[in-house]
Design a protein around this nucleic acid. Structure first.
Length: 286
DNA sequence: CATCAACCCTGAGAGC
DNA sequence: TGCTCTCAGGGTTGAT
């Protein structure tokens, strides 16, 4: 399931191939993928738009277009990839954008070399999503979609002090709070479990019970875990493979019954806020 | 504000 | 082999 590091990986991978291209057409193969506007309006408005930037906000991919913003949330099983225009759509392709080569005047066209051939040709941006939870928005203002998100954990503004104060404003279990995208943006089930273990905090601990020292540990653990995820190109689990290998370095996630990397105690699986949760009972106490 | 359950979906894995 | 059943999981919504 794509979380912040997986989305960041996809953004970095796609950006060089997308910027400058023009959307020629949209093929919507599963109507509910388009969260806003209607499919008809979506097709009309996106056609002719030039991709000017590809960024990330929390778990959203954000494509800056000429006069609109395209936001994509991969949810559980979504993936984005480039395919040759001739390729037959696969079973779970939900949206396909036909993209013209990056603009240049016809007279100054450079001779094509094998290495640059792909960039000079039409290509498909394919949104594949087995479970159909992923959604796409096309809007004039990205804040319509992302406006209520909490702070980006890797930004400078996300300080220990800010986290400590925010934690003490809430009386909630730690893990559901960290999964709440309006509290902090980008963490999902995997990175939350990993960060809590690194910070030696129990997922059921009350947010407002944390000491400053514990808040500092949590702050560092969140950032370290996310950065390691990005460095490893994210985790490849379920049947979505994007080249990442963070799944081979999990401390606790999906490792019930296996030894804690710190103390070798058997890792336990419990349910917290309706989510499968993995802890080391020795390292993480309430 | 906090908590909980239902919903959206599919395919993997278990049980028979 | 093939059927049926259960489950996971991000985010939203509505009830308590």
């Amino acid at each position: 399931m794509p979380e912040l590091p997986e989305v960041e990986t996809i953004v970095r991978l796609l950006r060089p191939d997308l910027v400058g291209r023009t959307v020629l057409a949209a093929n919507v193969r599963w109507a509910r993928t388009i969260a806003f506007p209607s499919v008809r309006t979506f097709k009309r408005q996106i056609t002719g738009q030039v991709i000017q930037g590809v960024t990330r906000r929390a778990k959203f991919l954000h494509l800056q277009l000429s006069t609109a913003e395209l936001l994509i949330h991969l949810r559980m099983s979504g993936d984005l990839a480039l395919k040759q225009p001739g390729a037959r759509p696969s079973k779970h392709d939900r949206l396909i954008l036909l993209l013209a080569p990056a603009g240049r005047s016809a007279s100054s066209q450079a001779p094509s070399t094998p290495a640059s051939a792909a960039r000079d040709s039409i290509i498909n941006l394919v949104f594949n999503d087995t479970r159909k939870f992923g959604r796409v928005w096309l809007t004039k203002d990205a804040r319509d979609v992302t406006g209520r998100l909490g702070p980006e954990p890797l930004e400078r503004r996300f300080t220990v002090r800010r986290l400590y104060l925010a934690l003490h404003a809430r009386h909630r279990q730690l893990k559901p709070l960290l999964l709440d995208q309006t509290f902090i943006a980008g963490l999902g089930n995997i990175y939350t479990d990993e960060a809590l273990h690194m910070a030696r905090l129990h997922p059921l601990a009350r947010a407002d019970s944390l000491t400053e020292r514990q808040a500092r540990r949590l702050h560092a653990a969140i950032r370290t875990t996310l950065r390691e995820g990005i460095r490893r190109n994210g985790a490849s689990i379920d049947w979505v493979y994007r080249g990442g290998d963070f799944q081979n370095h999990f401390r606790v996630y999906d490792r019930a019954g296996k030894p804690c990397p710190v103390c070798a105690t058997k890792i336990k699986r419990l349910i917290v806020g309706q989510r499968g949760t993995h802890i080391c009972p020795h390292c993480q106490k309430v």
